[in-house]
């Protein structure tokens, strides 16, 4: 079995250094514009920063993947094409793409540039993955978080490209790349703008009894004084249906499947991805070094089941193995 690759996020040059120093095999990042799915203010890399970061990483045996994983705007594909061109020129180890047109552009114009299929492409079955492989010579697929461990095992038996899965961080409960909830509420979406529940549309309001969090014109949650007020990511809010108030879509939890790494390795997964390009250096350092130890355990065959406790830095302070164990079934 080949060794598991640990793929860490970086939203800033400083975070990149921390990720490399904490033991990431690969750092993934994006340019500072709408071409990537974490297009947040003050985040991401310009061309010079990418060049410097890539040198720093390569000098230490760490790879760089460039996420260009939003869907190019009609009539304005230029910035996306340029992102691919620049990534190739700078020498990134792979680009991560979701859009068919963009994958085609990269395959046609940069055949030697390694291409990975973003989770935003929502390729959840062998036929979809084979399509991207045959059409655009995709070498790796980042699997949707809708799949269970059993489904990941079954899928890996039927595909010949590498597979990468998310092991820690924010958790999309909708099929990735196929969710317009954010744009319905705010006008901005992951697919078109590279943002979900954007901060510029968030308001917190203390109404005396509760702290109310709103996104655009809608209340997403309300917290009593003894509750920590969370970020109003709209699928993690509290809503009313049939007279009952609940976290209708998902509790405010984040994904942590550290305890399942041996099973993921056995399933044929080659790379483990940590979510969180928007997170700070402390998060990167702690999560990457914790997973480094766990991955080394699996790679050395000791297969220590890691019972890490990253809950203090997990979104919502709670963790879940998410769909991988399908408790909701």
């Amino acid at each position: 079995m080949s060794k598991l690759e640990l793929v860490a996020p970086a939203g800033t040059p400083a975070a990149l250094k921390v990720a490399v120093d904490s033991g990431a095999d690969t750092v993934y990042l994006g340019f500072r514009d709408a071409t990537n799915a974490r297009n947040f203010p003050g985040l991401n890399f310009n061309r010079d920063e990418l060049e410097q970061g890539l040198l720093y990483a390569h000098d230490r045996g760490c790879k760089i993947y460039l996420a260009i994983n939003t869907f190019p705007e009609a009539g304005n594909s230029g910035p996306w094409h340029k992102a691919v061109d620049d990534g190739a020129a700078i020498g990134v180890d792979a680009v991560i793409v979701a859009d068919i047109g963009l994958a085609n552009y990269a395959a046609t114009n940069h055949p030697d540039l390694r291409r990975h299929l973003s989770v935003q492409a929502s390729a959840s079955n062998p036929e979809a993955i084979r399509f991207y492989q045959e059409a655009f010579d995709i070498k790796r697929v980042v699997l949707p978080r809708v799949l269970s461990l059993h489904e990941i095992v079954a899928l890996n038996r039927e595909i010949t490209v590498e597979s990468e899965v998310f092991v820690f961080g924010g958790l999309c409960v909708m099929a990735e790349g196929r969710c317009a909830l954010s744009s319905y509420v705010t006008g901005q979406s992951p697919n078109t703008n590279g943002v979900c529940s954007p901060a510029c549309d968030v308001k917190y309001k203390d109404d005396g009894e509760r702290m109310v969090s709103r996104l655009g014109n809608f209340t997403i949650n309300a917290f009593s004084p003894d509750e920590a007020a969370g970020y109003p990511t709209l699928c993690k809010g509290r809503f009313i249906s049939g007279g009952e108030t609940s976290y209708l879509f998902e509790d405010p939890v984040s994904l942590n499947v550290a305890s399942m790494l041996p099973e993921l390795a056995d399933a044929g997964v080659v790379a483990l991805k940590i979510e969180g390009r928007q997170r700070g250096k402390a998060y990167i350092a702690e999560v990457v070094s914790t997973f480094r130890k766990a991955v080394d355990g699996v790679n050395s065959g000791e297969a220590v089941v890691s019972d890490n406790d990253l809950s203090s830095i997990a979104e919502g302070g709670r963790k879940t193995t998410g769909v991988y164990q399908k408790t909701w079934r």
């Binding site: 869907f71 859009d99 068919i100 079955n125 790349g177 697919n191 078109t192």
Partner: peptide, 29 residues
């Protein structure tokens, strides 16, 4: 779903609104 589009390639077919066709490049393909 894109898998269905792949299976239907080579014969006339329709693409529904849940397949991501956001731009001319994807439309052409």
């Amino acid at each position: 779903d894109i898998s269905a589009a792949a299976l239907l390639a080579g014969r006339p077919h329709a693409i529904g609104p849940m397949v991501n066709v956001y731009n001319e490049g994807t439309l052409d393909y």
